[in-house]
Design a protein around this nucleic acid. Structure first.
Lengths: 233, 233
DNA sequence: CGGTGTGAAAGTTTTCACAGCG
DNA sequence: CGCTGTGAAAACTTTCACACCG
């Protein structure tokens, strides 16, 4: 293969010192999602204006966001979907697959075990744990539920780096501590509590009731949509 | 009761013209969550510094955020938990209960039907719908699954204003259109697609794979945590 | 004191606007 | 041309710092 790409960053590398705003990274995921859809629909190139339009952002915002990571576009043409998808995955770290440990296999945990969307983005739930002895040993979605005692050794042996915490609120901190002790580097927390974690462990919280609360506010105040919804394509 | 409260806004009302940044509203939900926990733990008052510390924010930020909506504190004392909780609920619109319609009762939908966290914040899933005739009529979590044809009349008769969309990606836009046609004012979208909605319909997206993606990025770049995790209390 | 509420300063993110390229 | 990449300007958000209050 020749050198068709504009200058881009090498996998996993970032503009050295740079500090990329978190909000930029969250938009990157949206760009990637949209690009994957476009590519699947047979579209080969897209301009910043088109991509932004689909998501309710400006063309300039799309270009500035991408500009944090390198140069991916072709003047007069736009971006090649396949190239940009690859670049975004390199940046986000999802060109290789991630093994994830799930802690807490209740209703929600079981549903998440069955969710196909993770695999599509290269995440694989490699082990599931629960404190309840009645659940241990059961097989859910082809995965044998293990006792928490096996967390640390399994994390090590399977090269797991991320955890999903799907336990009740009053167990969450304790379970998080166990994940940290086992050597996990990041946690998605579905429990409605703030976790106290060492600085080197990343975390993302998903509070389902809070999502509804935000909607409640938006609906009751008829909140002006700032960068509103995308119009029809 | 005398007039112990400092000046505050009336329920559902906002600083008239004002435009409250979305990020402020998202922190409001976190304040509320923390306050509820503190009150349940028997704490009666809290200062902006303490509250911020628990969430990894500065004291000034807490005060500025609250300042958008009124004056809730007592100099030299802090905030009374019970008063502030009530105020936050007024602002967020959760002092009254909301009826929610769920569309799509697969794995994830069923798990969400059983999630107790919604009720605790005054949301009640009042009806569930699915396009699959095999599911219609089944009873899940005490709720009879209805066909989509009944969506509009049920939304009207039960005073439903919010919807939760828990269908596969390729059905999401169609289902969203039905929710809008039924008169719903806001949608929480669990499908990994961007919805095209009229401007008067609010929406919040929850993409579970994106949450993992964000974590992947944070872990691979060892992203400096800006306003990091709260230390131990 | 200890703590709020709030202007003013600092810092950050978005938008603008335009040179340059295929 | 049409579109990218990018400094410079504008808008917005956070932090600072201090008057004031109980």
């Amino acid at each position: 293969m020749a050198d068709p790409q504009p200058h881009s960053i090498s996998p996993g590398e970032l503009p050295s010192d740079s500090t990329v705003p978190k909000v930029v990274v969250s938009r990157l995921s949206l760009y990637l999602r949209e690009l994957q859809r476009l590519e699947a629909a047979g579209q080969h190139t897209i301009s910043s204006g088109q991509l932004g339009h689909l998501l309710g952002f400006s063309d300039a915002q799309v270009r500035k966001d991408l500009g944090f990571f390198g140069q991916f576009g072709y003047p007069g043409v736009g971006y090649r979907c396949d190239e940009l998808i690859r670049a975004m995955r390199d940046i986000l770290g999802t060109n290789h697959s991630w093994s994830v440990a799930m802690v807490g296999v209740g209703n929600l945990g079981q549903a998440l075990l069955g969710y196909r969307g993770f695999g599509r983005q290269n995440f694989s739930i490699a082990a599931a744990f629960d404190a309840d002895p009645a659940k241990v040993g059961q097989v859910v979605q082809g995965l044998r539920i293990q006792p928490l005692e096996e967390l640390a050794p399994t994390v090590k042996s399977k090269g797991i780096r991320l955890g999903m915490l799907v336990v009740p609120a009053d167990r969450a901190q304790e379970a998080a501590d166990r994940l940290v002790a086992a050597g996990v580097e990041g946690i998605v927390n579905f429990a409605p509590v703030t976790l106290t974690l060492p600085a080197h462990v990343q975390n993302v919280g998903v509070d389902l009731a809070i999502e509804l609360e935000q909607l409640s506010f938006a609906v009751t105040t008829k909140l002006a949509k700032p960068t509103a919804e995308p119009p029809a394509p």
